[in-house]
């Protein structure tokens, strides 16, 4: 039996008919989907195994962890949303951390209204 799906003497060396070309195209697209769906299924299964393992490990560690001390309690939550003007998230986070450090205040006790890049 030939290892080829189609005989190249029929198709490879001459022009394909419209019907054959359409059929080959559709079949090829389906094969790509099947291949990647198969991979998707395998990745989903392995992903859920790893997620389950990670949860289990976290659960095993949690009871042993010391209870947070009263003085470590965070201040009441943040209020509102910060407006950023031409400042990426990363830079904004860095600026807020620097300000908090300079003021010697916990970050969640400060309220930032907006950060704007001075041009």
């Amino acid at each position: 039996m030939s290892h080829l799906l189609l005989d190249p003497n029929d198709f490879g060396l001459s022009s394909l008919g419209v019907g054959d070309a359409g059929l080959t195209g559709v079949l090829g697209y389906i094969v790509v989907f099947v291949g990647l769906f198969l991979l998707l299924a395998v990745l989903c299964i392995s992903g859920s195994i790893f997620k389950f393992k990670a949860k289990k490990a976290l659960a095993a560690v949690s009871p042993a962890a010391p209870a947070p001390a009263a003085e470590e309690k965070t201040a009441p939550g943040s209020a509102g949303e910060i407006k950023l003007f031409d400042v990426p998230d990363k830079d904004a986070a860095m600026i807020m951390a620097i300000v908090a450090d300079k003021l010697q205040k916990p970050l969640n006790e400060l309220r930032f209204i907006s950060i704007k890049e001075v041009k």
């Binding site: 060396l13 001459s14 070309a21």
Partner: peptide, 12 residues
């Protein structure tokens, strides 16, 4: 692929 085949200018 379909377009090239259907054009008749190219082999499979």
């Amino acid at each position: 692929f379909f377009g090239a085949s259907a054009s008749g200018f190219f082999s499979g």
